[in-house]
């Protein structure tokens, strides 16, 4: 096929438009309500956090930038609707023939990337490559946010997830400053977390409330192309183990020594 990049993007835009329509919050809610095959639910009392150690894989070669994951997360976790407060978001990378890199994440990616005004700025560029990178909390093995919390409100669970005890958090925002990935925010006045707290730190928990019951995180379930994969490193059958076995993966900002547990497939240089 000898499609120019331009033609390809144009064609793709129409397809993506359809996907975006389906991915509106209402469509998501509808789809969810009609879902039949629910995974077997684990009883919370039976859950032993020493028997699990979770990891996350993101295949950037599969992500289509539909933004469904962002919407699903906002609904599942009562995340404030505005893009400045977000647990997960999607970044778009546009790389020109001369290897100049453009990054953006309009509306944190929750509207997708198909609206014409989102693409005006790329007109006339000789684009060599474009891809999406979904972001979420890396649940670092050496989490700087846990280190800096002055009251131990932010802590690591035994199964490898970083949580915020929102009745202890004093709202000093030191953890937000310490996170190199911009994964944290302070719940703004007027908004409350699912636990009913406001003006405290919040972040992606890999949907810990679902995970401990045996469900995947909401974003994983919402992803139409399987770009987000969640799993248990202690389970040999886990899809994450499969991916780590067969793919070359990379983590974000490895030089900072945070040891992220979100592993990216197909990460390009210049991804921030």
């Amino acid at each position: 096929m000898n499609l120019s990049r331009r033609q390809f993007l144009k064609g793709g835009a129409a397809t993506l438009g359809g996907v975006a329509l389906l991915s509106s919050p209402m469509a998501y809610a509808l789809r969810n309500s009609t879902k039949t095959e629910a995974p077997p639910e684990t009883k919370l009392e039976q859950y032993d956090w020493e028997k699990h150690y979770y990891a996350f894989a993101v295949d950037t070669t599969k992500c289509i930038g539909c933004g469904k994951c962002v919407v699903a997360c906002k609904l599942e976790n009562k995340v404030p609707p505005d893009p400045e407060h977000t647990r997960t978001w999607v970044e778009r990378y546009v790389i020109t023939e001369e290897q100049e890199i453009f990054v953006d994440s309009p509306e944190a990616g929750m509207e997708g990337f198909v609206q014409p005004q989102m693409n005006l700025k790329y007109q006339g560029l000789a684009i060599s490559e474009s891809f999406f990178v979904p972001k979420l909390c890396n649940q670092c093995e050496k989490p700087p946010c846990v280190q800096v919390c002055p009251v131990a409100a932010t802590y690591a669970t035994k199964d490898g997830v970083i949580l915020v005890d929102q009745k202890r958090c004093i709202g000093c925002r030191y953890c937000i400053q310490a996170c190199p990935y911009g994964a944290r925010y302070l719940v703004p006045d007027g908004d409350v977390t699912p636990n009913g707290y406001s003006r405290v730190a919040d972040k992606c928990t890999w949907c810990y409330h679902r995970v401990v019951k045996g469900h995947p995180p909401a974003c994983v379930e919402a992803c139409p192309v399987g770009a987000r994969v969640f799993g248990d490193m202690r389970d040999p059958q886990s899809p994450v183990r499969e991916i780590l076995r067969h793919s070359r993966v990379y983590t974000l900002k490895p030089s900072l020594g945070t040891k992220p547990k979100v592993f990216y497939i197909g990460l390009h240089f210049g991804v921030v």
Partner: peptide, 28 residues
């Protein structure tokens, strides 16, 4: 100024009661 900047000023006392000393802020 620090206290008033906190999201939860009433919990400011936690920094004395349950300090987490690996934090550079806990000793303040």
């Amino acid at each position: 100024t620090l206290l008033l900047h906190l999201g939860q000023p009433l919990r400011g006392i936690y920094i004395f009661i349950t300090p987490q000393f690996r934090s550079a802020m806990a000793g303040f």
